[in-house]
């Protein structure tokens, strides 16, 4: 049995489901989430996984729609443009509790990623694992990604692929050891 075939069998047996959402808008580097979704859908590493393991979606605003379709997922990966004051193209990986806190009286339009994730946590609809990936952006006025952000996209994709594979292998280890015990 090849490694890929073994992984496929494990994913299906264990019912692993990972949900990836790319947040974006048409404005320059804010397209990042959409560009990343396009690249992830073409990823040879990810397309080798069984179809039901992975859902990859574009989202055009970090509203409550982000919380849709998470039932039964083991992991949510969000990809978004980041403005953290670092060099353009810097890769960021944040666990849910580091996304920031949601404060004040929120408007539906002002319902940012932090607020949505917090709401999801409070009502218990987030998967056990939530990770946010992003690249520091430079310019939101153009119609394409700026050169430094574009140059960093392959690193971002590789990081997301690694995260998915780690999740799959951790789950398979847990599954194997529990199967062994029983």
């Amino acid at each position: 049995m090849t490694d890929a075939a073994r992984t496929n069998t494990l994913c299906m047996t264990m019912g692993i489901r990972i949900h990836i959402v790319g947040l974006g808008s048409p404005h320059g580097d804010d397209r990042l989430g959409w560009v990343a979704v396009g690249a992830l859908r073409r990823s040879a590493v990810l397309t080798a996984l069984p179809e039901q393991t992975l859902t990859i979606e574009k989202c055009d605003q970090p509203g409550t729609g982000l919380l849709q379709g998470l039932e039964g997922s083991n992991m949510l990966i969000v990809i978004d443009a980041v403005a953290a004051g670092t060099t353009a193209g810097t890769l960021h990986r944040l666990s849910r509790d580091r996304v920031g806190s949601a404060t004040g009286a929120l408007s539906s339009h002002g319902f940012g990623l932090a607020a949505v994730l917090e709401l999801g946590r409070v009502i218990g609809c987030l998967p056990p694992q939530v990770v946010v990936f992003g690249l520091e952006i430079a310019d939101t006025t153009g119609e394409v990604l700026s050169p430094p952000v574009m140059a960093a996209v392959p690193d971002l994709i590789a990081a997301v692929e690694r995260e998915v594979l780690e999740q799959v292998s951790c789950a398979s280890l847990r599954w194997t050891s529990s199967a062994f015990r029983s």
Partner: peptide, 22 residues
């Protein structure tokens, strides 16, 4: 003050609401 604070005490209501919205 906001929906998140409300959801802490009324999670089921907010969950039902978001399901309808979806």
């Amino acid at each position: 003050d906001n929906a998140i604070a409300m959801a802490r005490d009324h999670a089921e209501v907010v969950r039902r609401g978001l399901q309808l919205q979806a």
